[in-house]
Each structure stands twice: as C-alpha cells, then as structure tokens.
C-alpha cells in the first residue's frame, strides 16, 4: 500500500471527522498550541530584537542565546520539563517557545540593524523621536525580514507541536503517536499530512500578510 492510498483512506473515513479525536478538534487544538507558543515567542523576541537592532548593540549576546536555543533538543526539553513541572500545557509551551524565540529575535535584530543608515540619519535630523525613527522609518523597511523570522518560527512550532501528544495533550501529534502505538499507519500518515498541510497554509498566510503590510516601495527595491 503506498502513502497516497493511506492518505486517501484516512481522509475518506467518515469516523475521522467527528468527536474528540476528529480532525476538526485535533486541528483546532494544534492551531491553538501553535498560536499560543508563537505569541509568547513574539512577545519576547520582537521587542528585544527591535531595541537591540535599533541601537545596534548586543549582537554577540543574541547570537549566543540563539545558538543555545537551537542546540536544545525540543523533545529532551519536554521530558525534562514534565519531570520538573509535571503534566500540563506549560511543559509543552516551554520547548516550543525556546525553539521559536531565536529565529524571531535574531532575524528582527538583523533586519533593523541593517536598515540603510542614511534615511535614519535624515529622520533624526528632521526631528523624529527615537521611537518614531524605529517604528516609522526602520520597521517599515525591515518588515519583510521580520515577517520571515516570524514565519520560520511559526513553521517550526507547527511541526514541533506534535510532541504535545507525548504528554497526553491533543493536537495533530495524537494521530502520529497513537497510530505508531496501534500500528495504524493510515493514522500516522494522515496526521503527518495534516501537519504538512497546516505548515503550507501558514506559509501562504505569511505571504499574504507581507503583500498587505509591506509598502510597494520596499517590496520593489529589495
């Protein structure tokens, strides 16, 4: 039986579309975990990246944090957190946030730091406050890169959020883990396909967000 047949069988089975283990429920759970993790990571990563990028300082410290964050295996961190804190949503959120902060932080820092200095100098010389310089001059130009950092983080979160199922939570990881235990490969492949599909939809959403928010003058000149 090839993979396409498995996918077809999974999605064709009406039982997979209802109830607490149905696709809509699991998908909603997965999106919920992912959004929450992305939101927390953005709340941490964006301000720090914006401020350090604006003043052009702290790059070495950021690189260190980022490397450390990327070096931590999410699954290992999850197990540690469960042993330490116990079961629940928090031990799942921690590895997801640790995973997502580095790309957001480092990309935002680089995006703001590398904005052409001459418009920034002109803006200051015309009497803009530092906050205005950051939000009216630097961020609009840095936006494509900042969005790409968020996009990377979002896709990594979506694929990694499957680990929530290991500690008894829901999400699309449920299908993969339960399927593996039950040797139900239809379920495993179906879950994996859903995760991949969700990641693709996320890419599409970020592309659309960039179309809407990035000025034509920036899109065309970079």
């Amino acid at each position: 039986m090839n993979v396409l047949n498995l996918v077809h069988a999974f999605f064709g089975d009406g039982a997979h579309w209802h109830g607490y283990d149905g696709i809509p429920t699991r998908l909603a759970e997965h999106i919920g975990y992912s959004l929450e993790a992305l939101l927390i990571a953005a709340v941490i990563g964006l301000p720090v990246g914006l401020v350090t990028g604006h003043y052009g300082r702290g790059g070495n410290a950021l690189a260190l944090i980022a490397t450390a964050g990327r070096a931590l295996p999410s699954f290992g961190l999850l197990v540690l957190m469960v042993l330490w804190i116990g079961l629940g949503l928090l031990p799942v959120m921690i590895p997801l946030v640790v995973l997502a902060v580095p790309p957001i932080l480092v990309t935002t820092y680089e995006a703001v730091r590398t904005v052409d200095p001459s418009p920034v100098d002109a803006a200051r010389g015309m009497g803009m406050s530092e906050a205005r310089v950051l939000f009216r001059v630097e961020v609009p130009v840095a936006l494509p890169l900042i969005l790409s950092g968020l996009r990377t983080a979002a896709v990594q979160i979506i694929s990694t959020a499957t680990i929530a199922a290991y500690v008894g939570l829901g999400g699309l990881g449920r299908y993969i883990i339960d399927g593996l235990y039950q040797r139900d490969y239809e379920k495993v492949v179906g879950g994996a396909a859903l995760v991949a599909g969700l990641a693709l939809v996320t890419l599409l959403l970020f592309w659309a967000a960039a179309r809407v928010t990035v000025s034509r003058g920036v899109r065309r000149s970079t």
Binding site: P119, A122, V141, V214
Partner: peptide, 9 residues
C-alpha cells in the same frame, strides 16, 4: 544629506 536619505516605503 548625501544620497538624499529618502524613506523608501
């Protein structure tokens, strides 16, 4: 300033 320093956005 030199290079005008216009806001590209």
């Amino acid at each position: 300033i030199q290079n005008a320093g216009l806001f590209q956005h």
